[in-house]
Structures are given as C-alpha cells and as structure tokens.
C-alpha cells in the first residue's frame, strides 16, 4: 500500500504544463527587455518623488487659497449637477433596460445605451467632451452625467428584474394601468436601494471630478494639475489631503443614508 500522496496538478499533461511555464518565462524576460530601464533616470526621479511625498508633511493651503477654494466649489457644483442630471436620464433608461417590463426593441436600445456609457472610462469621455465643449466645467458635467447614466440605469434595471413578480400581478389584477403598476408595485420595491445608489454615485462623481479635471474638464482637478506643473508640491499635497477628507466625509454620509433606508 502506498503511503505518499500529492495533489494532482491542475494541468494533467506534463508537456503542456512545462511548456506553459517555459512560455510564460520567455515572454516575461522579453517584455522586461523592452522597457529600457534607465537606472540613472530612476535615481534622479526618486529624489523628485521624495520631494512630493515629503510635501505631505508641510501642506500649504494658503498660498493659492483662492484657486483651491474656487476649484472645490466648481468640483462640487459639477458633481451635484451631473449626478442630478444623470439620475434623471437614467430613470427611463433603467426602466427600459429591465427585461421583465420592457418590450424587446426598447430593451435592446436601453441596454445599448447602458453598454456605451459603461464601456468608455471617464477619462476618455472627458477628453472627448473637452474637445467638443472646450476646457471647463461644462465638459466635466457632461462626462460625469454620461457615466452616471450607465451606472444608475444598469443597477436600476437589475433591481427591477429581481422584484417579486407576485406584487406586480396583484396590482395588475385590480385593473390598474401600466403607470399605476409602476408606481404601486415596482417603485416601492426598488426605491430605497435606488436612493442609496444615488448617494453612492454622488460620492463616486466627486472623486471622478478630481481626475477628469486633469484633462481639462474643470474643477479641483484642474487646480491640482496646475500645481503639479509648477512643481508646487506643498499646494498639491494640500489639495490631495482636502480631497481625501471630502471623499471620506461623503462616503460616511452615504453609508449613513443607506443604513437608514433599510
């Protein structure tokens, strides 16, 4: 009777197994070779990186106080306007993207809108809108609203697809019209989560507004970018710390709201 045992390998064929290991090793070494690592440049950059990190020890919010304040006000305005606009548009799209409510052609159209909105990362969309509308917060609002539509519509549609169909049946059986069915049988089942998701999206949009500002879509991101270009790391640190503070505050706020909606 044998007394040794080892687990069977994930790939049973030894030729295939060792062939894959070898292939991966060759690919990695070749790929590393194409990176052209320049150690001298790396050492030089390390200094600059350290200058940036150490700036967090002495952030300076006062030197460019006005720009920072205006940047944050603009970002918050962009965030709120874009979130409200996006949610408003996501409502009909989300209803249309729910398989249990919408007829097939409408379903495909709305799923298409959701897919397009979710395929492109915010930063790419922002670059496009900056080209279309020029630098500034309008491009930012358009970007965030565009991203919000896909996010909210997809999650709303999935919630609607998961509702209890018996409640819908019961309301239809009373002779209610289609909008009354939506209002009485669908809305009560998805509303709490929809509000929670809206607050969650609000805090995502604030974070995103800082990122897309870097490509010219206005807000605090633009201020941050300017400070980087001037090598004013102490100002940049102050901005980043404030962003972190605001994000944590909104995240806390949204978790409290979601908790209370249960």
């Amino acid at each position: 009777m044998s007394e040794t045992w080892s687990p069977p390998p994930a790939i049973r064929n030894p030729w295939l197994r060792y062939g894959l290991y070898l292939g991966a090793a060759v690919y990695l070494s070749l790929a590393l070779g194409t990176l052209h690592l320049n150690w001298a440049r790396l050492a030089e950059g390390l200094d600059r990186g350290w200058a940036f990190v150490s700036a967090f020890g002495h952030p300076d919010i006062s030197k460019h106080w006005r720009e920072i304040w205006e940047g944050f006000v603009e970002s918050l305005t962009m965030t709120v306007v874009a979130t409200a606009l996006g949610i408003l548009i996501s409502l009909p799209v989300g209803l249309g993207a729910a398989r249990n409510l919408a007829p097939m052609p409408l379903y495909l159209l709305c799923r298409g809108i959701v897919a397009i909105s979710r395929t492109f990362p915010e930063i790419i969309v922002a670059i496009l809108f900056v080209k279309m509308f020029g630098f500034g917060p309008l491009a930012g609002v358009a970007t965030l609203a565009f991203a919000t539509i896909g996010f909210m519509a997809k999650l709303l549609a999935e919630d609607i697809e998961d509702i209890d169909p018996r409640q819908v049946e019961a309301i239809r059986a009373t002779g209610a019209g289609p909008f009354q069915v939506l209002n009485y049988a669908v809305q009560p089942q998805v509303m709490a989560r929809f509000i929670g998701l809206s607050v969650y999206r609000l805090d995502i949009n604030f974070r995103e507004s800082a990122v897309i500002g870097i490509v010219g879509a206005g807000g605090i991101g633009a201020t941050l970018n300017t400070s980087f270009e001037r090598y004013e790391f102490d100002t940049a640190a102050a901005i980043l710390l404030t962003i972190i503070g605001i994000v944590m505050a909104t995240e806390y706020f949204s978790s409290v709201v979601r908790e209370r909606l249960r």
Partner: peptide, 25 residues
C-alpha cells in the same frame, strides 16, 4: 402578494386603482 413596503391603507386602497386616475393615485 401585498406591497411589503407600503402601508396597510395604501395596500387596501390599491384595490381602487382601476377606478382612479394616475395622478390621484
């Protein structure tokens, strides 16, 4: 098949949906 998140009264009144208009309901 009650609407779980609505009140008892709203559930009972939902039996009248066939008789009242959308905005009233």
């Amino acid at each position: 098949a009650l609407i779980e998140r609505l009140t008892v009264m709203e559930n009972v009144l939902s039996g009248r949906l066939g008789y009242v208009g959308f905005f009233a309901s």
